[in-house]
Design a protein around this nucleic acid. Structure first.
Lengths: 232, 232
DNA sequence: GTCTTTTTTCATCAGGTGGTGAAATGGACG
DNA sequence: CGTCCATTTCACCACCTGATGAAAAAAGAC
């Protein structure tokens, strides 16, 4: 869509090198990320990606192979960073509050890294979260993809919660997590729906407002589900 | 994908009639609904729809015009039924519990119609909910579409909640609703992710399990968000 | 039956799709 | 210089895309 400014290069036209090669690879990933996030996998053509990256179509295939492999590369690039940040956050909370962990604290240590990265990571990360939210709701292959990349962190969350509330049933924890995930992903994808719904009072880009509410919301939800099951 | 059984017809080949015409129209909508739900708008071709409906491609354009208009027709077909059912449910709760409404009760009257319809409405409705969840997470035009079709019910929910908790800030209600929507849509789209995540202990198709937890989860979330704001 | 209107099929279009193989480019190294 | 080699471009393919206009088939009116 946007003009195809072929990226600042030292020399004039077409002056490749090993450094430039890797640079272009990242440029392609950036363009693909933004486009896939906005229009979905099938809504984007390799030509669009190439044009926006200021690159020949064949170059995409040279670096990534098929279109689907390009998509996977986009997905993978940030997934590991994400997992690392979340595990680190949960480790830190774990250590700092050993023996005095709360459900809300655990949940915060699980979600907050994502909010922080989205706030501080620039447009690329924003697009990425939109992409993940979209994959999360894709029935055909989304579940498999999410499972492949994000299961470890989730299992870590469930296990920690199990420590905090030993009486809780596993099923309640899994279902509560599913509810949490839906809320979190929708908040991170900043669809703008809350803007029009609230007639401008709320803004989906206001992640500080999310932070101020989401942890408490989810924690209370978890507690309620656990309590209801324990009573019954 | 599936074989193109051209639909049982009284005579042999190609014997249309006014009744058959409307019948085919619905058949096309059914096929389009299922395919759009599974693969998204751009992931489906008019030819696939035609093949699955056992119909010529041109017939789709004859009845619906452009591809996007077909999509809108799919979306619209059940939206009104849905809105009617939800408003009726909320009206009924309103009348039955006038003066003694609870947050959880209101939320249940808002969500339960969807669960019931999904359980009793057959495969078509299941596909439809997947479709809505997908649109809900589509950044390019999803927010606009959701707003256009579903805003009234949501405003009704927020207003009713405002009656139950007059001290609540509007922003808290809107944000809590956003969280609720994310959980609800993900649950209704039955992605199968919870199945693999829980290693078979939970099943995303088990809407009874959702019913047993989602209302309490969301209600507790709302209360927590409201309470936190009131204290601060 | 004939005439009219709606529904369905057929043949086709212009343009776009993902993908490929061969050639060109330019740096690295001797 | 000449020779490698990774990178980048170019030209192209077979196939599919959404869409259309004209013909055919069927239904309905009389």
């Amino acid at each position: 869509m946007t003009a195809a400014k072929p990226r600042a290069r030292s020399g004039g036209r077409g002056r490749p090198s090993k450094a430039k090669g890797l640079d272009l690879k990242e440029t392609i990933l950036d363009s693909a990320e933004g486009l896939f996030a906005r229009h979905g996998f099938y809504g984007v053509t390799t030509r669009q990606v190439a044009t926006e990256a200021g690159v020949d179509t064949a170059l995409i295939h040279y670096y990534f192979g098929a279109k689907r492999e390009l998509f996977d590369a986009v997905f993978l690039r940030r997934a590991e960073i994400l997992n690392q940040a979340r595990l680190a956050s949960m480790d830190a909370y774990d250590k700092a509050h050993a023996g005095a962990m709360t459900v809300e604290g655990v949940i915060e240590s699980f979600i907050d890294p994502l909010l922080r990265i989205s706030q501080e990571g620039g447009q690329g990360w924003k697009s990425y979260f939109v992409l993940v939210a979209q994959v999360n709701n894709t029935p055909a292959w989304g579940g498999e993809t999410m499972t492949r990349f994000f299961d470890p962190v989730v299992h870590r969350l469930v296990e920690t919660l199990k420590l905090v509330r030993p009486e809780a049933d596993h099923r309640d924890l899994y279902w509560s997590y599913q509810f949490l995930t839906g809320s979190m992903m929708l908040a991170l994808s900043e669809t703008g729906r809350i803007d029009s719904l609230s007639k401008g009072v709320c803004h989906s880009s206001d992640l500080e407002a999310v932070r101020a509410r989401l942890f408490a919301y989810c924690a209370a939800g978890f507690e309620a589900v656990i309590a209801r099951a324990t009573v019954a």
